[in-house]
Amino acid sequence: MFLIETEKDLLQSFRPRDREKVEVPKGLKFPLLVRDYFAWVEPAGTRVFLVCPSPDKKRPMGLAFRRESQGSSMPSQMCDWCHTYGSSNEIGLLSTDVNSKRRVGVNLCLDLRCKEKLESAADLSGRYSRDLLPPLMERMSRFATEALRIHSVPEP
């Protein structure tokens, strides 16, 4: 759980290369208490933003993803983070810059509503949804650590 006091703090959670791309949702109220993670899709639908705990869990970390074009004939796919299945309209390739010469991508829920999907599945199965969230958060952290080489977000 973390608290984002201001819009400036939200923007500071993103890597410098991503900050200019971030479009803060209209009507977002601060301070913002985030239990697990916070995600939103920009109005144009091209970018998806994620703020989650950094791998060292000391600060929030922001990631800016770009939705990659896929043919509508793609078969059902599985989200690499929450392991739910969906059509190509629900799950697809989200990519982000590692540096100016390299991008990495991962198959994810296109709206990053993984937590809601896990909670819904838990409700249907009678499982306790909080048991399903730690693995999801670990997969997010692993992506930041392994694919993006993020160990912590430096102080501004």
Rank of each mutant, 00 (worst) to 15 (best):
residue 26 K to P: 12
residue 29 K to A: 15
residue 30 F to W: 09
residue 30 F to E: 13
residue 37 Y to F: 10
residue 38 F to N: 05
residue 39 A to P: 05
residue 40 W to M: 01
residue 41 V to N: 12
residue 42 E to K: 02
residue 45 G to H: 08
residue 46 T to Y: 15
residue 47 R to H: 15
residue 48 V to I: 14
residue 48 V to C: 09
residue 49 F to P: 00
residue 50 L to D: 07
residue 51 V to N: 00
residue 53 P to W: 01
residue 53 P to K: 08
residue 54 S to L: 06
residue 55 P to H: 04
residue 55 P to A: 07
residue 56 D to I: 02
residue 59 R to N: 13
residue 60 P to V: 11
residue 62 G to W: 03
residue 63 L to W: 00
residue 64 A to Y: 08
residue 65 F to C: 06
residue 66 R to P: 00
residue 66 R to Q: 14
residue 67 R to S: 04
residue 69 S to A: 15
residue 69 S to C: 07
residue 71 G to C: 09
residue 71 G to F: 10
residue 72 S to V: 14
residue 74 M to Q: 13
residue 74 M to L: 09
residue 75 P to M: 03
residue 76 S to P: 03
residue 76 S to W: 07
residue 77 Q to E: 05
residue 79 C to T: 04
residue 81 W to I: 08
residue 83 H to A: 06
residue 83 H to Q: 11
residue 84 T to R: 11
residue 90 E to M: 12
residue 90 E to A: 13
residue 90 E to T: 14
residue 91 I to H: 02
residue 93 L to I: 11
residue 93 L to F: 06
residue 95 S to N: 09
residue 95 S to Q: 08
residue 98 V to W: 05
residue 99 N to S: 11
residue 99 N to A: 03
residue 100 S to P: 02
residue 100 S to K: 14
residue 100 S to V: 13
residue 100 S to W: 10
